[in-house]
Nucleic acid binder design. Structure first.
Lengths: 344, 344
DNA sequence: CTGAAAGCGCTTACAG
DNA sequence: CTGAAAGCGCTTACAG
């Protein structure tokens, strides 16, 4: 591979001049520029990133850690982030955290060692090791989708509570009174906030909270399926189900089928998170969609600002609004079970 | 940040000794090892990757270029690749090529400049610039899913022709004679080979090829939708449709709905490529599934072998077999249209 | 078994 | 406007 010295020799100048030309510093005489350019072309010179990084202390690479890229939500986020970083001339080093296989803390350390100028993370949940690893990191961090509270880092997240509230209010508006929630884990901000929004809505509609309608899951398909099935088979089944994330929604759909019921005739289903092909699902899903593109872009520009400014962090999280997209998975409750909750 | 010199000072040894300890060379006296370890812990020392790379000429990073990570097929591939690289202690620099926004050639150059030890690519199609960029690359390359013929690089791909042949044979076995194909572009190996498999099957079953049943698309949903709709509205509609990739399948499903038909009663649909949630689709899709995990893993181990051995490349592509998963989107043709092709 | 020193390929004051 | 030289943080022969 060609080095700067080789180019300098070929052009009959010093390496300082080559460097100036490569970096577009306009201090070099036009005639020399031309000669250097020729030499670069002739030798096929490519600047060496490691040498540059070593000297400058910048890598031009941003690390990204997400839980699971097979989840279309994160796939789209990563896609948007990559495009935004590309535009800003950053490379993206991606770590996918197949839930638990590697601790996210270890991923942070690996990325730090490999060299990044900044980091975007969707944390799995409350995790002391991760907190410590992020604390030890000297580069700026931006949380996306989920955040670690009081970490002082920037964050771009949905207003999950408001979005969940609106979704459940919609179900109540259709006449449902027995509305179940398939909740995510409470040590994750998204899990916690979506449950809070559900409770807000019930309270606002004067619907008593029935413990039997609260199913805890771990944002996994199997959890969603098992919990939903158990609830459907119980003696106090719901007429509507609010699923707190996309993957659990799939589980719920399968459970409804397992139970021999059909949606939305027997039970309504509302999904937090949309799917790229929600309209070829059976049923076509009514869901809360998140502004994924804007989430990814804002996270990137926040991070790039921090990298450039080396400024202090933590303006508090940027909150985006979700949007309820009404398709065909929710109907008013079946007549014969209307108000069942009051009679039990 | 702590440097090796600082650790050496703290431990009262030379940096050569620190380096030996860090790299686990067992030439250092145990007592010194302990002292160095303490100093490392005390200073919070992290080795500097740029310096290491500059000295050793290895980055410990592999570049990955895929067309579109929102496509679940590529999302899963990337996921598997990341896990495999992680196990082998490589980082992954990912470029997503939102079809055409950036040329893949440019991505290759960017990755090369940033520093990679090897590259895994799913090329978009025939592309001289990409060929040139790959040719100029001094690091080993492995193609995945699609390949650039005669490039001399390794590749891991599906036996697309055989898989397509089997799929179409299945449709013919159900009694279909008017089987349409929604084909991908012919400058991509997957597009070409799947069409060839379709033709093979028709020939084997002595079914005449009807040009009107050949729809060209660009592996996009819109193409799939438009082409399918046009064909369904024509005066010689098919009784079965073979879609050559996942995204076009979605388009086809929507077109069938647009046309007021229902699948599989009015028309059968067979998809090349499965979806993670194909069984909550309406209809539940019968599809050709690819061994994605094994594809990603073989690509990684091939690449890592090459990187380690710096050996010569090009053993010819590794071919994996697809599998037909039968769900509910294919039925025998409707009675009233059986054999329509012969009467037209 | 350990250390002093060269050198990987750049950038950037500093002279001229 | 241009060049000689130092130095970024490592690794690795080479002495001792």
């Amino acid at each position: 591979v060609a080095t700067m010295t080789m180019v300098a020799d070929a052009a009959g100048v010093s390496i300082a001049t080559v460097s100036a030309v490569v970096n577009g510093k306009d201090v070099v005489r036009p005639a020399l520029i031309a000669r250097v350019r020729e030499a670069i072309a002739a030798t096929g010179y490519q600047p060496n990133a490691a040498a540059r990084t070593l000297k400058l202390g910048r890598t031009g690479v941003v690390g990204v850690i997400v839980p699971d890229i097979a989840n279309p939500f994160f796939a789209e986020i990563v896609s948007v982030i990559q495009a935004a970083l590309d535009r800003a001339d950053y490379g993206m080093m991606l770590c996918v955290n197949a839930e638990g296989s590697e601790s996210q803390a270890r991923q942070v350390e690996l990325l730090a060692r490999r060299g990044i100028d900044g980091l975007i993370v969707a944390p799995l949940g409350e995790d002391q090791a991760l907190r410590a690893a992020l604390g030890a990191l000297s580069q700026p961090v931006v949380f996306i989708d989920r955040l670690l509270e009081d970490s002082g880092a920037d964050a771009v997240v949905l207003d999950n509570r408001a979005a969940a509230r609106e979704a459940v209010r919609y179900l109540a508006g259709l006449g449902h009174r027995r509305i179940a929630i398939l909740s995510g884990p409470l040590d994750v901000t998204t899990g916690r906030d979506r449950l809070a929004g559900y409770q807000d809505a019930l309270r606002a509609m004067d619907i008593a909270v029935d413990e039997r309608l609260l199913c805890m899951g771990n944002f996994t398909e199997n959890d969603g399926r098992a919990a939903t099935l158990a609830m459907l088979m119980s003696d106090a089944p719901p007429t509507a189900l609010f699923s707190a994330n996309n993957v659990m929604t799939i589980g719920a759909m399968k459970a409804i089928r397992d139970a021999g019921l059909s949606c939305p005739q027997d039970i309504s289903l509302l999904s937090f998170d949309d799917f790229p092909w929600a309209d070829v699902f059976s049923p076509e899903l009514t869901s809360v969609v998140q502004p994924v593109a804007s989430m990814g872009e804002q996270a990137c520009s926040l991070l790039i600002d921090r990298i450039g400014a080396r400024s202090s962090e933590g303006q508090g999280p940027v909150m985006l609004q979700g949007q309820l997209v009404i398709r065909k998975s929710c109907l008013p409750p079946p007549r014969d079970r209307l108000g069942a909750s009051n009679e039990t």
